[in-house]
């Protein structure tokens, strides 16, 4: 909260972005405290990692200082105070914190908690709700991420014209310490990503978090050794294909279950034993999620970094 308040008063956008990263990390630890380990993992990887990198990329492409706003803070402050007071008044009718008798714990949640062990056979309830009970929602969200990746691509990407970029991308490979540490860390990050991806059924984790962690490993490589070298490892074309492949894996699993006589995304028919079917289904679907998330994050990052190089070529 303190970090959130200082963001209001700071002018230096660079400091704001770093503070925002700290804010995300603090809220991640807050989520652990509230038993939401999966959410905490996601927030730590996404908020403190990827969004900070993207915002820094935007800073590099635009400007660093905020100018003084021309209108005074009185009117917005009044609006905010009135809204806040109204909301606090509204909370008086809300159920108390952490009371097991709250309405939210009565409706469908007990069924998830009691039945998912037998029906899905996956210890992590978050995974079984995410990939099986609410598989439609998750498919929709993967499509949203895919669409956002496409949007960034159309706004910043270079379709058609493709000017040949001869300028070397900025890199930090002359820093010996950074280079050595990064080389030691990147395999470990990828290994950890794989663990998160495939162990998500048993512990906290899953496709979303693993995808972000994979992307973070490659982005780290691109920052230290330069974008070109990273793009030689995994070319933009491959990334763009992978973006679609992930969504297709997810939707494909749904279509296959339909052909096997089940419902769309009803994994029970995938194997002779319904529980095994659920296992296969969740594994495949999480793989699709992981592939799409990795590819979209990488595509967005490369769009930003290529843009910077195009800008600096045009300036010359």
């Amino acid at each position: 909260m303190v970090t959130a308040f200082s963001i209001v008063f700071m002018r230096d956008l660079f400091a704001i972005v770093i503070l925002f990263g700290i804010y995300s990390l603090v809220s991640a630890s807050f989520f652990v405290n509230l038993d939401a380990v999966d959410v905490a993992l996601t927030e730590a990887a996404v908020g403190a990692g990827i969004s900070t990198v993207l915002m820094l990329g935007t800073l590099a492409l635009t400007t660093r200082r905020e100018k003084k706003s021309s209108h005074g803070p009185t009117l917005p402050l009044m609006v905010v105070t009135v809204t806040g007071a109204a909301l606090i008044f509204a909370t008086l009718d809300m159920p108390y914190f952490s009371d097991p008798a709250n309405p939210i714990h009565q409706h469908i949640a007990p069924r998830f908690i009691e039945q998912s062990g037998q029906e899905i056979g996956v210890p992590n309830m978050v995974t079984s709700v995410l990939a099986s009970y609410r598989g439609y929602d998750t498919l929709g969200e993967v499509v949203v991420i895919f669409a956002a990746g496409l949007g960034v691509l159309t706004l910043l990407g270079r379709f058609g014209k493709r000017p040949e970029i001869t300028m070397p991308s900025p890199s930090m490979s002359h820093h010996l310490i950074l280079r050595v540490i990064a080389k030691a860390l990147i395999p470990l990050i990828i290994l950890y990503g794989l663990y998160i991806q495939f162990h998500g059924d048993y512990g906290p984790g899953g496709g979303f978090q693993a995808g972000v962690i994979f992307a973070a490993a490659i982005i780290l490589y691109a920052i230290i050794f330069g974008t070109e070298k990273a793009q030689r490892v995994i070319s933009p074309t491959v990334i763009h294909i992978l973006m679609a492949v992930g969504v297709l894996i997810y939707a494909g699993v749904g279509v296959i279950t339909m052909f096997l006589g089940g419902n769309f995304l009803g994994y029970n028919v995938l194997a002779h034993d319904p529980v095994h079917g659920q296992h296969y289904g969740i594994l495949l679907v999480e793989l699709g999620v992981g592939v799409t998330v990795t590819a979209v994050m990488l595509s967005i990052f490369f769009d930003f970094s290529d843009r910077k190089r195009i800008q600096s070529i045009e300036e010359q």
């Binding site: 939401a36 999966d38 959410v39 996601t42 927030e43 996404v46 908020g47 990827i50 969004s51 993207l54 939210i104 714990h105 469908i108 949640a109 998830f112 908690i113 309830m125 978050v126 709700v129 995410l130 609410r134 929602d137 998750t138 969200e141 949203v144 991420i145 956002a148 990746g149 899953g206 979303f208 972000v212 998330v293 979209v296 994050m297 967005i300």
Partner: peptide, 17 residues
């Protein structure tokens, strides 16, 4: 309750996109 966790997990990733 696992259900809000699921919803928020995806909300974070969609949020970053």
């Amino acid at each position: 309750n696992p259900l809000p966790h699921v919803l928020m997990l995806t909300a974070i990733v969609v949020g970053v996109a």
